[in-house]
């Protein structure tokens, strides 16, 4: 089973990289880009077959290491 973890900055946390990307898109002529937020995508291959246990384990991984919950939110999606 695979877990796909998306980590995004909480609203209210300034994302200067997202702003720079939005600016660059504007320079390239892509109009109508209101805002860009950059995040992280982490894919984890798991030995665990039980979906409930896998999800609980990945959430713990997020809380302990993958995300810093002072500034980031995370979502966990199980595939396969």
């Amino acid at each position: 089973m695979k877990a796909r973890v998306h980590i995004t900055l909480k609203s209210g946390v300034l994302d200067p990289q997202g702003k720079a990307i939005a600016h660059a898109l504007g320079s390239l002529g892509f109009s109508g880009v209101d805002d860009v937020r950059q995040g992280k995508f982490i894919e984890i291959k798991l030995a665990e077959q039980d979906r409930g246990k896998a999800e609980a384990a990945v959430k713990q991984m997020c809380e302990k290491l993958l995300a810093n919950t002072v500034i980031e939110n995370y979502t966990v999606e199980l595939v396969g």
């Binding site: 946390v13 300034l14 200067p16 990289q17 720079a20 810093n68 002072v70 500034i71």
Partner: peptide
């Protein structure tokens, strides 16, 4: 900060 001994976090410099 990451270990929890101090509160908060250090983000990318505002001017990148």
């Amino acid at each position: 900060c990451e270990s929890g001994l101090l509160p908060g976090v250090l983000l990318r410099n505002a001017a990148l």
